[in-house]
C-alpha cells in the first residue's frame, strides 16, 4: 500500500473549525485543511493517526476520533500531556495547525462488517475507538455494539455527546464506570474489567476493540482471552513517542515492530509474539 509513497516531512496547514472541551484534560479539534481541494480529496481510515505540528513545538502523533463516513472535516481529540498538547489546548477556532498523514495500519472496517463489537475503552482511549463506533453505526448491516467505558472520575467522562446518542441507539449497549465517584454519580465504581462479567456477548461472533492506559489494555486483553475471544479477534491500538510516522526514526519501536507502520492497530495474536511487558 505504501510502497510507492514518498515523504517530504512537510506538514500542510489546517484550520480549526471548532473546539469541543470533552473534559478538563481533553479537547476535540474539528479541523479542515486550509487548501479546500486538498481537504476534499483527503481520506483516512479509523485507527490511523496524523502528525500534528504547532509553531516551535514540533510534532506529535494524534489518532483520528472522527469517522471518514462523515467527510468534510476531521476530528483529533487531544489530552493535555506535554508542551505541544498544552499549546494546542490554548488555541482558538480559526487558528491553524500543521498536519502530515494519515499514517499507520488502520482497523479494517470490512473485517468488522456484520460482526458484533465489544468496545472496551479507558480515558482518552475512547478517541480512536469512537472513530470505529461511529463508522460502524453509519454503515448499514452492522452488528450489535457493546461499549464499556472507564473514566477516573465522573467529571472526566469524555465524548458525552456521543455517549448520549449511543445510550439511546437500539443496536448499542453502553456502560460507564469510574475509578472514584463524585456527588451525583449513581453508576458503577471500579475498573472497566469489572464490567466485562456483566455484559452478554458471544465471543464467537464478536470482535473486541480495546484502548486505554497500558496497564488497562494488558488487563483487558487477558480478561477477553479468558472470556473465549480468539486472539485474532481482540484488537488494540497503541500509543508511542514518534518522530517520523513512516517507519524510519525508530522512536516507536516495540520489540521487532515499529508502531507507526506495523501498527498502531495490533491484534492480541500479533502482540503475543512480542514481549508484552513493554506496553
Amino acid at each position: 500500500m505504501s510502497l510507492m509513497r514518498s515523504e517530504d516531512y512537510l506538514p500542510r496547514p489546517a484550520v480549526i473549525q471548532k473546539i469541543i472541551a470533552e473534559n478538563s484534560q481533553i479537547k476535540t479539534f474539528v479541523l479542515a485543511l486550509a487548501d479546500q481541494q486538498a481537504n476534499q480529496a483527503f481520506t483516512y481510515r479509523p485507527g490511523q493517526f496524523m502528525m500534528v505540528s504547532l509553531p516551535h513545538r514540533g510534532e506529535a502523533p494524534i489518532s483520528f476520533s472522527s469517522t471518514p463516513t462523515r467527510p468534510g472535516t476531521i476530528e483529533l481529540s487531544v489530552r493535555r500531556a506535554g508542551s505541544l498538547t498544552a499549546a494546542m489546548h490554548a488555541l482558538q477556532a480559526g487558528d491553524q495547525v500543521g498536519l502530515r498523514g494519515p499514517y499507520g495500519r488502520p482497523f479494517v472496517m470490512e473485517d468488522l462488517q456484520g460482526r458484533d463489537l465489544l468496545v472496551v475503552a479507558g480515558g482518552i482511549g475512547l478517541a480512536p475507538l469512537r472513530s470505529v463506533i461511529n463508522g460502524c453505526l453509519d454503515t448499514p448491516g452492522h452488528g450489535k455494539l457493546t461499549i464499556l467505558y472507564g473514566s477516573r472520575v465522573p467529571s472526566d467522562i469524555a465524548f458525552r455527546g456521543d455517549i448520549d446518542i449511543w445510550q439511546h441507539h437500539p443496536a448499542v449497549t453502553c456502560h460507564l464506570t469510574v475509578d472514584a465517584p463524585e456527588p451525583g454519580w449513581d453508576g458503577p465504581v471500579g475498573l472497566v474489567t469489572g464490567l466485562l462479567g456483566q455484559v452478554k456477548v458471544d465471543p464467537a461472533s464478536s470482535t473486541a476493540l480495546v484502548c486505554g492506559p497500558p496497564v488497562m489494555i494488558a488487563a483487558v486483553l487477558t480478561a477477553l482471552g479468558k472470556m473465549g475471544f480468539a486472539d485474532e479477534e481482540i484488537l488494540t491500538t497503541m500509543e508511542r513517542h514518534m518522530k517520523c510516522g513512516i517507519g524510519v526514526c525508530r522512536h516507536c519501536h516495540l520489540d521487532s515492530k515499529l508502531v507507526c507502520v506495523d501498527g498502531p492497530v495490533f491484534s492480541r495474536a500479533q502482540l503475543k509474539k512480542l514481549q508484552m511487558d513493554r506496553l
Partner: peptide
C-alpha cells in the same frame, strides 16, 4: 526531529541523529 525558533514567528524544523540507548528515546509526553 525538533523545531528551532529563529524568531517569534518563524524557525526551522531540524532532523538530528539520535540513539536508541538514550533514556528519553521512547518517553511519551
Amino acid at each position: 526531529i525538533v523545531d528551532r525558533p529563529a524568531g517569534p514567528d518563524c524557525g526551522e524544523r531540524l532532523r538530528s541523529w539520535d540513539a536508541c540507548t538514550f533514556a528519553g528515546f521512547t518517553r511519551l509526553a
